Computed example of a mutant assay.
Amino acid sequence: MDYRAYNFIRAARPFHKLLQRFMFLGLVLVCFFIMLVGKLDAVLVDKLRSNVVGALIPIIDVMSHPIASVTEVINDLASLPGIRETNIKLERENLYLRQWYLTARKLQAENNQLHALLSSVSNTNRSYITARVVASFSGPFKNSLIVNTGLGQGVKSGQAVLSQQGLIGRVVQVAENTSRVLPITDIKSRVPVVLETNRLRAIMVGNNSSSPNLAYIPQGSQLIVGDRIYSSGDGDVFPAGLPVGVVLAVNGDEASIQPFEKFNSVQFVRIVKLQQPIFIRSGPKVE
């Protein structure tokens, strides 16, 4: 049996060498033939290609499942160290947040007791009107937003306008179904504010740039870069406690503010409904 197999291999050796010699030439001729057929009848070639691909897809799909499974296992094993590090980091953050949660509950209880002792009236119950920004105007002399709510929806001049991040302006003109909003960065804007850390009160003055200035700062005040700023409620122009921005830079007694939100990138806003809003003198209504 072995002798016959040896004779067969010995007899087939010349044909094997001949096949190797002319294989490259044969492949070139086959490719040339396929290109020629493609030029002569492109529809036939496209149909043949579609049939071949359609026949091979089930085979490829079956073969790919083991490969995909092995690849998924390899990726899972490779990501194990990262998962452990992430888990440790999340456990630390969870512990840190739980400590802050307990501190916040304690402060909330103390705050409620102080409010009860002072018989103070809470001013945090606010309602809002949601509006969509339909136009935005930005220039060196004038900035404004046009929203699609007005008198018909309960909007009144002087109401504060918020984005998802914080205060962006106030309503200055109202029509039946539209309103014009003056951004806090406009040169005509003035916002009474209070700093979070040292409770200093000042006025944020718009300058038609992305970084309004902080004016009327008490002399000798220590301003901290990154300190958060909220509306103080002075003058009843804006409700107290609305987030405004952070201290961006300090130069002596001057400071610049980075608002939490850029007014020209806002799509939806919330208008704070006041029971007795301050009516600010303005021009003609928006048509």
Rank of each mutant, 00 (worst) to 15 (best):
H16G: 10
P81Y: 03
D46F: 11
Q113V: 10
P66R: 01
V133C: 00
E85W: 02
K17C: 13
L95I: 15
V37E: 03
H65S: 04
R98K: 12
N112M: 15
F32C: 07
D46T: 10
S79W: 08
A109F: 11
S120A: 08
S64A: 13
K17H: 15
A78I: 15
N51R: 14
A135I: 04
M63K: 05
L80C: 08
P81C: 04
W100Y: 09
L90R: 05
A116K: 06
P66I: 01
V28G: 07
V62N: 02
S122Q: 11
E72M: 09
V70P: 00
A104C: 03
K39T: 11
S64G: 01
L117V: 14
T71P: 00
E110W: 02
L80I: 14
L56F: 08
V134N: 04
N125G: 02
N123S: 13
Q108V: 06
Y96D: 12
A131C: 04
P58G: 02
I67N: 01
L90A: 06
R105N: 09
A12S: 14
T124A: 10
W100D: 08
W100C: 10
E91F: 11
P81K: 03
F8I: 14
L44R: 06
S50Q: 09
I9K: 08
V70Q: 05
L40W: 05
D61L: 09
S136G: 04
V121A: 05
D46N: 15
A68N: 10
R84G: 02
A42K: 08
Q20D: 11
F137S: 08
L97I: 12
C31D: 12
T124C: 04
V134H: 03
T71E: 08
S122M: 09
K89A: 15
V52H: 05
A42F: 12
V52Y: 10
C31G: 13
L19H: 13
V73Q: 14
P66N: 01
F33R: 10
G38Y: 03
F32L: 11
R10N: 10
K17A: 14
I83K: 13
T103A: 15
R132I: 04
A116T: 10
D41V: 01
M63F: 11
A68F: 07
G82A: 06
G38I: 01
R13D: 06
L27I: 14
L77I: 09
A104N: 07
H16R: 15
G26Q: 01
A109D: 06
A68H: 06
A135C: 03
M63Q: 06
P58I: 01
F32H: 04
L36M: 11
S69Y: 05
I57M: 06
V133M: 00
F137C: 07
P58R: 00
I88S: 03
I59V: 11
L107S: 08
V45W: 02
P14W: 01
T124F: 09
T130H: 12
D41Q: 06
F15M: 15
T124P: 00
N51W: 13
K89F: 10
S79M: 12
A131Y: 00
V62W: 04
R98V: 06
A131I: 02
L107Y: 05
N123V: 13
Y96H: 12
L95N: 09
